[in-house]
Design a binder for these strands. Structure first.
Lengths: 208, 208
DNA sequence: GTCTATACGACGATAGAC
DNA sequence: GTCTATCGTCGTATAGAC
């Protein structure tokens, strides 16, 4: 009665192990760039064994992405759930999102793969399962921040400001004005929040 | 003397035809998602003929992307070259970039593929050949807009605000607050410019 | 320049033993 | 649940005729 639950915890199910070990592969190389053989090798199984746990490659990919996203999305929603002023909650969320994107490259890349996917079934499944909840929370915050602005556009802009910065991370190396501290998520978060609060210095000093 | 140039214009070189017809394929399905057979079929050649014009698939891809980017990047740089106030030039650029991203999905997707590429040689080649010039121009504009802000970060934010909106175009369909006019590049451009000018209504009305 | 033919490895997926 | 073995297809790339 004591041993049983311990054993369950220590020896993880093969299915979960496959999900966990295949996500970094899909994140780095995309759906077409990863073969069932690659995944099998990473898990330490033969390729045929994967078909016992998943109907086909597509289903494995779908389950892997959903599995990887579940906990991150929950964490992001928590950041938005506080009860400070809307601007305080925004700062908290932007900083948290920036930290996550900086530390978890695989998650960032999976987001990019999903956005690029041309398989409509796959994309709509993931959009609804994985993005929607998170977007709704930011959308609601956006309409609190400014009831007169288009909340959909503002929410998208908040995501875009943070995510695009990290998306461009590799190519930014070759761009002028690059300094190491720009990779610090706190620095980016401050920049984004300042921008959203309208603190570009000369914005009001110019002819209108 | 008259015929010769006419003939040159009318009958395009096979090499250029390959470049032009392969970019939409690469844009939609990425490097791994397009085979030499696919490209050959699109051009109306056999697969073997492609190897007369390009050393291998990688070189064909590199040339195709560079070819596609050349004219768009030139157009974008033109938008930045005017001699109005910095804010006027920003508005002009943002509107132009938004129009381009809205009308030319293939270009947008190629940008995404390049950002996701894990092949370092390919990515650094394209970053320098294709992104750098455009970024420099926006970077310089950014430092004119506000000499006290980090121009690198601001330039990246300007790109991110416009590009991410269209990147998320397909998944936005499933998000709340979606309205058809948000797909209008002029509407997005105005939103982005307002945001950059610090015109979120309650930004200053809130406890600071 | 473009063709046919082909080499040869990798792919997703299945059958059947254990 | 996992294995070995195999199927048919597709991938890049090359050789050599025209």
């Amino acid at each position: 009665m004591i041993r049983q639950p311990i054993r369950i915890i220590r020896k993880r199910k093969t299915r979960e192990e496959i999900l966990e070990l295949s996500t970094p592969l899909f994140a780095r190389h995309g759906y077409d760039g990863v073969s069932m053989r690659d995944i099998a090798a990473a898990v330490g199984l033969t390729q045929a064994a994967l078909y016992y746990h998943f109907a086909d490659k597509n289903q494995l990919y779908l389950d892997a992405v959903a599995y990887e996203f579940r906990e991150r999305v929950a964490a992001l929603k928590d950041m938005l759930a506080g009860n400070g002023t809307p601007w305080k909650r925004l700062e908290c969320f932007v900083a948290g999102l920036a930290r996550m994107m900086a530390s978890d490259k695989d998650f960032l890349r999976l987001v990019q793969w999903v956005l690029l996917d041309t398989n409509e079934a796959r994309q709509s499944t993931l959009a609804k399962q994985v993005f929607r909840d998170m977007f709704v929370a930011v959308h609601d915050l956006a309409s609190e921040l400014d009831p007169h602005v288009d909340a959909h556009l503002l929410a998208m802009s908040i995501f875009g400001l943070v995510i695009f910065h990290f998306q461009a991370g590799a190519t930014r190396k070759f761009m002028p004005g690059r300094r190491p501290q720009q990779d610090n998520p706190e620095v980016l978060a401050r920049h984004v929040c300042d921008l959203l609060r309208g603190r570009l210095a000369s914005a009001d000093g110019e002819a209108r």
